[in-house]
Design a protein around this nucleic acid. Structure first.
Lengths: 352, 352
DNA sequence: CTGAAAGCGCTAACAT
DNA sequence: ATGTTAGCGCTTTCAG
């Protein structure tokens, strides 16, 4: 095995080639001021000629930046999604938005799974922070709502972005308007003539669950419809909880003719309940879901759904974190990105 | 902004706490010999007490290992998959297998997109190598079959693994038995009574495309069936190419009653052609696909498919690369991992 | 079995 | 506007 310890071409080689000092090369590659255009030119030429690319490790060790953004996802949920092979593409959309945005700025995104529920969250995260020293951290739901995590990051003075977490507090809040999305979904059903629109909530562990419920309430009230508790099914994002909630909603004395489910899995459960009960979708029961994961388009019928801008949110998160390290002032408002209601075949006029 | 340059707890602190030299701590955390159990004990205690975790950057800079495995995927194909939102979960399965295996060994997997077709592949890859100095590289199809890439890595003396690339040559070859899988898929159809089984190939850019075709041939011949050119549709993994190929196969004077498609997209195209022609699936046309991405289970009818062990292959790749750095001898045979034929509703008895 | 010294490639702080 | 110096936190030599 050859000596792989030494790097082929280092800043020294570039400095020699351009006939300047190390420092000047460093200044040029970091776009710092106080270098004459002519010297810049020469350095750039040397860089190109030698194919020089700075060592991430050396930059991190010598300087105050690591050029690393750490994305933290929930371990169990993520692994379950992967194992199921059902195409929950949260991670893919994050990579699409986050990795590409990082690359634009010469940063890299590193992906890590941590267990929100574990007593060792702190230790797990501290280990990642110590090892990597990332310039910023992206928290995905439900991590952004976990005070143990946000406080740890605050204490460590590491900038972080909370995706899908709407409360204010430390860190950038990046979300879509969940309440408004639920309102739009519900209004869509009301406009189709539905009077009894049920709602299936997500897990309380997620702040957005409450926001979505509020949106449904607002739309129902605005239309003068009943928004009493019996129309609210308590779910936790799992298929099974969707079955229970949907069953209750269609079993009411005055049953729901439409359901808004807080994610695709629970909407699929509603579809399943409809079939078991001999209810045609959308004729007898209309369904709208949240998330718009790939299954939404392949179910029978395909689901009308609220699409979350996951890629856009992650890209924005990366951007804010990178700018924060560059000393740009924080934005004065939370970033709220546009969602989309994708209308498919699971919603139709009320038959009742 | 506080001074974030200094690490909270370094090897020095551990050494002081344990009353030994830096070196001894280093030996202990790297499981090197020549440390008395008693001293090890003390060091471990100090590590635990202080919550010490070594800095990746410093390890890479000081030593000869980076504890980084770089996974290289095809840029266009990957981004298209993400944007389409159709749930191609190649990347997820890679992360499932690769990230978790890396984590087991204290390594990290970094994910990077490079454009196989670009004239700048070399530059793109060299940039990643210079910046990261990974201990190993995982090439996914079609990178493993691209000599520009494999030669570059060989020249740089960086261990690499080729996933889904069967030729021998430098680097670990990790694959499933594509030929045998095609044979099993074809035999499944023959056993159902099909005589005219068509085959839709993948792009020639992928070595596995040829292997799959050979498997089909072998099964057809073994059963005494016609394996002439007219039963072979040339595809390139795209939906459109699948439409053309499937159309030709069902339009033969003696039409195919079953089709093996080299991926799910082309199988969906065959499904589409069947519907347009008024052919019921599986009654009039049976279809088997390769890949078993999430769409395969959500199509109507769901597709019988060959499932690739992507997670297992990536895990194996990571394992071999890590062992290579640790000086373990290379395995004498390529790693061939088991595939699975998942039987769903798109295949049935021949009606002809 | 253990320790001391040197240096990895870069940036920060301080000259000039 | 540029160069010099001193580390960053670790591993690799080399001495004991």
């Amino acid at each position: 095995m050859p000596h792989t310890r030494r790097q082929a071409v280092t800043i020294k080689h570039v400095a020699a080639e351009a006939g300047v000092s190390l420092q000047t090369v460093s200044r040029v590659i970091n776009n710092e001021p106080n270098v004459r255009p002519q010297v810049q030119e020469r350095v750039h030429a040397a860089v190109a000629k030698l194919g020089y690319v700075p060592s991430l490790a050396a930059r991190r060790l010598g300087g105050s930046r690591s050029y690393l953004i750490l994305a933290l996802n929930d371990r169990d949920r993520t692994i379950d999604g992967w194992r199921s092979g059902e195409g929950t593409d949260w991670v893919d959309q994050m990579l699409l938005g986050g990795m590409l945005k990082c690359a634009e700025h010469g940063y890299r995104m590193i992906f890590e799974l941590v267990d929100t529920h574990s007593a060792h969250v702190e230790r797990e995260i501290m280990a990642a922070l110590s090892s990597l020293r990332p310039d910023g951290v992206i928290l995905t739901p439900p991590h952004g709502d976990n005070p143990t995590i946000t406080e740890l990051l605050t204490r460590q003075h590491i900038p972080f972005a909370r995706i899908g977490s709407v409360g204010d507090g430390a860190g950038f809040s990046i979300s879509m308007d969940d309440a408004h999305a639920a309102e739009v979904a519900t209004a869509h059903l009301i406009a189709l003539g539905h009077r009894r629109v049920g709602f299936i909530t997500g897990s309380d562990e997620y702040a957005l669950s409450g926001a979505r419920l509020e949106g449904w309430r607002k739309a129902m009230r605005a239309a003068g419809r009943d928004d009493s508790e019996e129309l609210i099914g308590r779910g936790d994002f799992t298929f099974d909880s969707g079955i229970a909630a949907a069953t209750a909603l269609v079993s009411l004395a005055d049953p729901a003719t439409a359901i808004v489910a807080s994610n695709d899995q629970m909407a699929l459960a509603a579809l399943h309940v409809a079939e078991a009960r001999g209810l045609a979708v959308p004729r007898d029961l209309s369904i709208v879901s949240f998330d718009n994961t790939p299954v939404a388009r392949f179910s029978v019928p395909p689901l009308t759904a609220i699409a979350q801008p996951i890629a856009a949110m992650t890209a924005r998160a990366a951007e804010l974190l990178i700018e924060a390290k560059q000393g740009k002032p924080d934005p004065d408002a939370p970033s709220v990105l546009p969602f989309e209601l994708v209308v498919r075949a699971s919603t139709g006029p009320c038959d009742g």
